[in-house]
Design a binder for these strands. Sequence first.
RNA 1: CGGGGUGUAGCGCAGCCUGGUAGCGCACUUCGUUUGGGACGAAGGAGUCGCGUGUUCGAAUCACGCCACCCCGACCA
Length: 487
Amino acid sequence: MPQDKAYAQALANKTTDFAGWYNDVVMRAELAEEAPVRGCMVVRPYGWTLWENSQAILDRKFKETDVVNAAFPLLIPRSFLVKESDHVEGFVPEVAWVTQVGSGQEELVEPLAVRPTSEAIIGPIYAKWVQSYRDLPLLINQWCSVVRWEKRPRLFLRTSEFWWQEGHTAHATQEEAEERTRMMLEVYRSFLEEDMAIPVIPGLKSEAQKFPGALRTYTVEAMMGDGRALQAGTSHNLGDHFARAYDIQYLDESNERRYAWTTSWGMSTRIIGAMVMVHGDQQGLVLPPRVAPYQAVIIPIWRADEQKAAVLEAVDRIAKSLKAAGIRIKVDASEGKSAGWKFNEWELKGVPVRIEVGPRDVENNSVVLARRDRPGKEGKEFVSQDGLAIHLAAVFENIQSALYHKAAAFREDNTVDVSSEQELAEVVGARKFARAYWGGDPEGEERIKQATGATTRCIPLDQLGIEGKSITTGNPTTQQAIFARAY
RNA sequence: CGGGGUGUAGCGCAGCCUGGUAGCGCACUUCGUUUGGGACGAAGGAGUCGCGUGUUCGAAUCACGCCACCCCGACCA
C-alpha cells in the first residue's frame, strides 16, 4: 500500500494515529540513539509555513492591543524558579535541568532550569523595569520554545519541547489586570474561531485546574474530531502573587509603594494538532484558507507537447494574476506525475482549492475549481478565467465558514446536558462533552475524575443564569460546567 | 513508574514457531510508452536483521541480559 494512503487511513482514526499521517509535514527528530529526547518535533517547511501564517495573524492581533515583542533567557537559575511556591510545585516535576558543562567534569554552582514557561525569569526582570506607575502597564510577548518533560508526550499535543508565544503583562490595578486577561482570551477566541475555524468554549478553569500560582485561569476549550477536549489557549490573571514573589513594586501617584498586578497568556503549536483533528478527513488534511500555506494549487494538464506550451502559458498567466491579488498559489507543473496523482497529493496536504487547467480550459478561457472540503463532483465547478481572483476570494470565505460551522455542529451534536454523576460517566465514556450544574466543590470534581477520567474543562463565561442542582452536591447553583476527557 | 506490544532497505511489512547466510509492496535511478482522479513494462541501486553475550559446524530465527520506540494507565492545571 502506498505510504501516503496508509497515512490517510491512519487519519481516519483521528484519536491517536493522526500523528503518523502528519509525518509528511512534521516528523519526529531523529537524534543519536542514546539521546534522552523524545516527543520533540522537527517541522518541515510546509508545516512550518502553516504555523507561521497562524503566528503572523496572532502576532498582529496582539499588536492591535498594544503588546510588543521581546526575548528573554532560555535558562532560569534554580533560585528564581523556586520563589513562587505554587508555581514551583506545579512545574518542578517536569523541568529539565542544566547541571554541568564540558564533558561533565565541571558542575554548575547553581543548576539552571530550561524554561517550562518564563514567569520565573521575567518576574525578576520586571522588578527592575517597573519603578513608577508611569512604567505601567508593561505589555510584552515572546515567541520561543519551552521544555516540559511530561511522562507521556503526544505528538503535537504534548511534546517535550514546543514552540509557543507567552505574553506577560504588569498593571497598576487588579481591575486592569483582569481586563487584560479577558482581552487576551478574546484574542484567542477570535483567532481560533475566525482564522482556524475551530469553535471554542471560553471559560474559567476550576481551582484544581488552574495555572500554578495564578489567581484565575481562563481557557478556550475545543472539541476534537473524536470528541475529546483540548485546551487550545489560556490566559491567567496572576493577581499579585508573582509580583510579591519577585518583588515587582512601583510608586503610585501619591508616592505609595505598591505591588503590581500581572498576567500571562499562551498558545502553542498544539493548535496545529487541533486543526488536524478538527478538520481532517479520510483524504488527509483540510486547511482553513486563512492559514493554509497554499490557498490554491494549480495543476496543468496536457497530453501532446503542442498542448503543453499553451497550457503552461495560461497557467503562468493565471498564477501571476492570482498572486498579484494576494492569493497564495502553488503551481505543480512537475513532470512524471499523473494529474490524478497530483490531485491526491495536494488533497492530502489540505490545500483548500485545486485549480485544473487543461487544453479544454485554454480553449474555453475557463478553469476547473475543486473544493477540498467537498470531495467528489459536487465540489467541482467550471468557471471563467476572467475575474477568477474575485471569485476565489469568495470561495475561500465560503470554505472558511463551512469548516467552522461543520465543526460547531459536530460539537453541539456531541454535547449532552447531564444531571447525575452516573449520566455524566456514560456521556464522557462515549467521548462527548457533558454539561452539568456544578457548584465548584473540589471533592466532587476529584471524585468524578477518579471515577470517569473526565476533568472539568471549564466553567463557560456564557451562562444561562438559570438555577439547577449541582451534580456533585445537589445544592442549588446557577453555574454550569463542561466535563470531558481531555488530551 | 506499572501493563501490553514492536524493533529486518528511506517508509510499511513478511520471514522466527520447525536454525542453513534475507524477501515483498511503496519510494529511488535509467530507458520507453503514459498523463482530465494515485499508469505500465524492462533493467538497476540500496539492509551492521536494535545492541551484547551465549548455545551451535552454522543464528534474523534458540537462550539470557540490555537499549530504543509505540499503545494503555499513572502523570500532565
